[in-house]
């Protein structure tokens, strides 16, 4: 693409809350860009406003100042080019796995036959075949988040945003799901073109991302932007891996 327009531009985004006339600054002048084939992690301690930032980026929240541009245009929450995966899965308990996955397509008024075929493809890609008619409560945590991921991929977004997608899961399930995310990411036939993920786990960020953006706490400011040039699959016991983790730790503390 060269010097073509970046997929996502976050331009000097700040966010404040006002309580009884006093201003509480959450985010301060956040600025970065995302190009195609970028896997970026936003990491920071709790209270750095990283989840708020992600919600501003997908258009669910509005910045106090600054701007978010997607393909050069201001972002809208219901933009089908951007999909979101939630920490708490945010599955509709009254819909089956298949119905949950078809949700985004239903909103796009796709006809039922097309919906079914597309949903089937992504249900299969995340390994949920066999659970199509199960309700979310019948699934384990890892399976629930797979539904969340399949639901997001089904609308074939260019950008996938994930808000702490593994932190409601136990350590074993989380590690397994991280690997499967990387498997999906390495398949060029599948969406998305770029991933933006929020996490509080530095190890997780170094394990997954090409680029890590480090935020400080209260208000959230950008401390550093690091290219992680380790080859995949990465081994968390590797001294080089640990070098990165230590460096980010020292930036935050």
């Amino acid at each position: 693409m060269g010097d073509a327009q970046p997929l996502l531009q976050v331009k000097d985004v700040s966010k404040s809350y006002f309580d009884q006339g006093k201003e509480f600054k959450i985010l301060d002048l956040i600025r970065f860009e995302l190009a195609e084939r970028d896997f970026v992690c936003l990491v920071g301690p709790s209270g750095c406003g990283k989840s708020t930032l992600l919600r501003i980026i997908v258009g669910l929240d509005t910045p106090t100042s600054g701007q978010v541009l997607f393909e050069g245009h201001p972002i809208r929450a219901d933009n089908p080019q951007v999909a979101m995966v939630f920490q708490s899965f945010a599955l509709f308990p009254w819909l089956t796995v298949a119905q949950n996955v078809e949700l985004g397509l239903e909103a796009l008024h796709e006809d039922p036959a097309k919906r079914r075929t597309v949903a089937k493809k992504f249900i299969d890609a995340v390994g949920l075949t066999g659970f199509e008619n199960a309700y979310p409560r019948e699934l384990s945590g890892g399976m629930k988040q797979r539904v969340g991921i399949a639901r997001a991929l089904t609308i074939e977004p260019l950008l996938l945003c994930m808000d702490e997608p593994f932190s409601s899961l136990d350590a074993l399930t989380a590690q397994n799901l991280r690997d499967e995310i990387l498997q999906l990411w390495s398949n060029p036939d599948l969406p998305p073109e770029a991933v933006l993920m929020v996490t509080h786990s530095i190890e997780e960020a170094v394990y997954l991302a090409d680029r890590v953006i480090v935020l400080s706490s209260r208000p959230g400011r950008m401390v550093a932007e690091l290219e992680i040039d380790l080859p995949r699959p990465r081994n968390r016991k590797d001294p080089e891996f640990y070098g990165w983790v230590d460096e980010i730790y020292s930036l935050i503390v």
Binding site: S140, L169, A171, L172, T173, Q175, N235, R236
Partner: peptide, 14 residues
């Protein structure tokens, strides 16, 4: 769950 068992295998392998 499946994920837990696969996660365990991955962890031991690592």
């Amino acid at each position: 769950s499946v994920g837990q068992i696969l996660g365990l295998v991955e962890a031991v392998d690592e």
